[in-house]
């Protein structure tokens, strides 16, 4: 396990000498700013509506966390789905195309050293992205009184999702020496895994009884979106956290197998 640190540090440094990291962080910041602004405007509009409804005796409430922060984090989750694959695409593919894979695999490192080192670098980058997102809700504390627990659980959800995405991205990158192919494999996997799976399975089951069968409900469980949405409502459920732990671990094990298969092919 001593080899994890040097692998992770080098990878993290290499993110920041390539333009990809800066492009990703710039786009991420711009999108975070715009989505926060649009969530804010939407919140103001709904507040205005509430005030008018209250005037005619209708009682309803809006609050900062549900009305503003959680929709904002939800939007950033979708953005992450598209941007994070660009960060992880080079994790292994660039080692292969540089010829440095030969150095990595002939060094006294275990498969886990290499895979966890790469994963930690990706996770650290994702943490930077989350920190940028966290900046915007933090602004609210200057003007209002948002619920810190809900915001924290929303950010935690985003981080757990990103860990799973990094793990999927690492796996895709370990399969090819071409970064573009790694990017596309990751994106498609994340889209299918994240959102499309329940639709696909439901569509397939339509010809049957019409009731969601065991397969359909299993597919819904496997889909990332289902768990992410629950976490994003501020509900930290062990089963959802366990889901992300399982997905992350599963793809890390697959990555280790793919990396070592080069050694033993």
């Amino acid at each position: 396990m001593k080899g994890v640190l040097p692998v992770a540090t080098r990878e993290l440094q290499s993110f920041f000498v390539s333009p990809v990291a800066y492009v990703v962080l710039t786009l991420w910041s711009i999108l975070a700013g715009s989505f926060f602004l649009s969530s804010l405007l939407g919140f103001l509009a709904s507040q205005e509506q509430t005030r008018q409804l209250a005037a005619v005796g209708h009682v309803s409430q809006t609050n900062l966390s549900d009305g503003l922060v959680l929709p904002f984090i939800g939007a950033m989750w979708i953005v992450m789905l598209f941007l994070l694959p660009a960060v992880t695409m080079g994790l292994f593919a660039s080692e292969k195309s540089n010829g440095t894979e030969e150095l990595l695999l002939t060094s006294p490192l275990t498969g886990w050293d290499i895979v966890l080192g790469k994963f930690c670098a990706g996770a650290a980058f994702a943490a930077i992205m989350i920190a940028i997102v966290a900046f915007f809700p933090a602004l609210l504390f200057a003007y209002g009184d948002p619920e810190i627990g809900k915001i924290a659980s929303g950010l935690l959800a985003l981080f757990l999702v990103s860990l799973a995405y990094v793990s999927v991205g690492a796996f895709a990158s370990s399969l090819t020496r071409n970064q573009l192919i790694a990017f596309m494999i990751t994106l498609v996997t994340l889209l299918v895994l994240g959102m499309l799976m329940p639709f696909i399975v439901d569509a397939g089951a339509l010809g049957g009884s019409g009731e969601p069968g065991a397969v359909a409900s299993a597919a819904r469980w496997v889909a990332t979106g289902h768990h992410a949405e629950r976490l994003l409502t501020g509900l930290v459920d062990t089963s959802d956290v366990a889901y992300f732990a399982i997905i992350t671990t599963a793809f890390l094990v697959l990555t280790k197998t793919a990396v070592e298969s080069v050694r033993w092919r």
Partner: peptide
Amino acid sequence: LPETPPLHPEMSVSGYLRYVAAIKG
């Protein structure tokens, strides 16, 4: 030393060698 030297083009020479020393344990 493989047929093509396994270099990370974006690193400095000393940074690269420090990295190699680290992964060599």
